[in-house]
Computed example of a mutant assay.
Amino acid sequence: MIGHATKAPSGHNTQPWSFKISESEIDIYPDFTRALPVVDPDNRELFVSLGCAVENLCIAASHKGYSTHVVVTGSGVIKIMLSQDSTPNEPSSLFPQIPIRQTNRSLYNGQIIPDDDIASLESIDTEADVSVHFFRIGSPEYEIISNMVYRGNSLQLNNRAFKRELQHWMRYNKKHQDATYDGLSYAVFGAPNIPRFIAKPIISSIINEKSQNKTDRKKIASSSHFILLTTSDNTIEQWVNLGRTLERILLKTTEMGIAHAYLNQPNESSELALEMAQKLGIPNEYPTILIRVGYGKKMPYSLRRAIESCILG
C-alpha cells in the first residue's frame, strides 16, 4: 500500500513524505527536509502531494479488502486507520492506473476532449471545501489563465532564489538521476543523456522568462482544457482534501487516455492568485492547483526512492 502511495505526484518530484506503520494504522508524516521554501513557502503544495499519496494508499487498501478512515491532525500528520471489510469491495478501476499515471510535460496533439468525457471528470467526487473548475481552450477564462501563467513565469524566473531552488532539484543525466531517485529528471523533459558538465550550463542558459513563456505558449495551445482546483479556507486539512480530489482526477484521466501537466505559476503568487480568482468570478476561493489536459504520447517516468527509505522505524 505504501508502494502505491509513493507513486503520487509531488512538486519537483521531491517526494516529501515518510510513513509509520502500526498494527491497524498507517501514518503519513510531512518531510520538511524536502520542502520547497521559495516556490511553496507555506508548504501548501507539499500537503497537496501528501493528499495525493493518501488517496493512492486508500485505493490500494480498498483493493486489499480494507476500509479506511482518514484524520488530518493539527500538526499535519495524516492518520489512516484500517479495518478489515466483512464484504468484498467492488474493484476500483482507478487502482491499476496508480503505477502508470505520469505527469506529461510534452506538447500535446491539439485534440479536444469530448464533452461527455469532461462531464465524467466533472462528476468525480470532491472532498469537503474543495472546488474543481474546467475551462475549455478558446474560452475567455482559458485566455485569462494563460496570461496569468506567463506573468507567473515573469515573477519566478526573475527571482534568483527560485532559479537556485529549481536547479537544486534538476537531475541532468542518467547517472545523476540514478544517484538520487528523486527530482526533475532530464528524461521527463525529453533531454538527451549527456555528461553533466555539458548539460548543466545548457539547461541553465534556457531557464529564463522568454524561453519559458515561448515553451508554455506552445504547450497551452496544444492542450484541450485547464482544470483549476481551489479550496475555501486555505488550511492544511483542505490542502490534503484537495490532493485526494486531484489524484482521483489524475487517475481517471489516465484511465481515459488523457495526459496532464502542471502550470501552477499563478497559484504560487498570492497577488496573482487573488487577481485570477477575481477575474474568473470565484473571489471567495483560493486557486491551488492548475493543470492542463489533452492528448499526448507517453513520456519517461520520474523515478521514486526505495520504499524502505520512506518508512520510519
Rank of each mutant, 00 (worst) to 15 (best):
A8R: 00
P9T: 07
H12S: 11
T14Y: 01
W17P: 04
S18E: 09
K20N: 09
S22A: 07
S24N: 13
I28T: 05
P30R: 03
P30F: 05
D31S: 13
L36N: 02
L36Y: 02
P37H: 06
P41H: 09
R44K: 15
R44M: 07
S49W: 02
G51V: 01
V54T: 05
V54D: 00
E55C: 00
E55W: 00
N56I: 02
L57D: 01
I59G: 00
I59A: 02
A60D: 12
G65P: 06
H69W: 10
H69M: 14
S75G: 12
V77G: 05
I78C: 08
K79R: 15
I80P: 00
S86G: 14
T87G: 07
P88F: 11
N89C: 11
E90D: 08
E90G: 05
Q97V: 03
S106E: 11
L107M: 14
D115M: 10
S123G: 06
R136W: 01
S139F: 03
R151T: 08
N153G: 10
S154G: 08
N159D: 15
R160V: 15
A161F: 05
R164E: 15
Q167R: 09
M170I: 14
R171P: 00
R171K: 11
D178N: 14
T180V: 13
Y181H: 15
L184I: 15
Y186D: 08
F189C: 06
P192K: 14
P195T: 06
R196S: 06
I203V: 14
S205Q: 11
S205N: 14
I206Q: 10
I207T: 09
S211C: 13
K214H: 12
R217S: 13
K219C: 05
F226L: 04
T231I: 01
N234Y: 04
G243A: 11
I249G: 00
L250I: 09
M256A: 15
G257I: 04
A259Q: 01
H260C: 06
H260G: 03
A261S: 14
A261V: 06
Y262G: 01
Y262T: 02
Q265G: 10
P266G: 11
P266C: 07
L272F: 04
A273M: 10
E275K: 13
A277Q: 07
L280I: 12
I282E: 02
P283G: 07
N284D: 15
T288Q: 14
I289S: 08
K297V: 07
R305M: 15
R305S: 14
I307H: 08
E308A: 13
